[in-house]
């Protein structure tokens, strides 16, 4: 029972584990770079969720071919893939901004350790 439960859902379990790892990195790590890495893992897990949700065994890409005809069950659902494409673009932009902020922060404070930076901000204020 338990094995069957997991066997049928292992992609989702993988996604959940990835999400957890990402969140763990973002919340528990003191190093800002590790936080940003956690963020990208978290985002990737979400992309995977959409791709997995749209996946159909034995279906092909959603481009019309003579061979498969017009039977919709033989094509994969294009919408989640479009969503993922867009989300990836958004995600890349966010990561880019995050990295640039990271650089600026490092230049200003000489550290990426959150505690050290907060300490330094408090002192200057």
């Amino acid at each position: 029972m338990t094995i069957e439960f997991f066997a049928g859902r292992y992609p989702y379990i993988l996604i959940a584990v990835l999400l957890a790892i990402g969140l763990y990195g973002m919340t528990m790590k003191r190093n800002l770079l590790k936080k940003v890495i956690g963020m990208t893992i978290f985002q990737t897990a979400i992309y995977l969720f959409f791709i997995q949700g749209a996946f159909k065994q034995g279906a092909t890409i959603p481009v019309y071919t003579e061979e498969f005809g017009t039977d919709p069950t033989l094509y994969m659902n294009p919408l989640p893939q479009v969503i993922v494409l867009t989300a990836i673009v958004v995600g890349v932009a966010i990561t880019g901004v995050a990295l640039s902020l990271l650089l600026v922060t490092y230049r200003r404070f000489g550290s990426l350790d959150e505690e050290v930076i907060i300490q330094s901000m408090r002192e200057s204020a």
Partner: peptide, 23 residues
Amino acid sequence: RGGAFATLRYLLIGAVGGGFYLL
């Protein structure tokens, strides 16, 4: 001076928020 750092923290929380919404 602390602007970039504060914004980075905002960005991280924002990413989680956006991520949850997308999920």
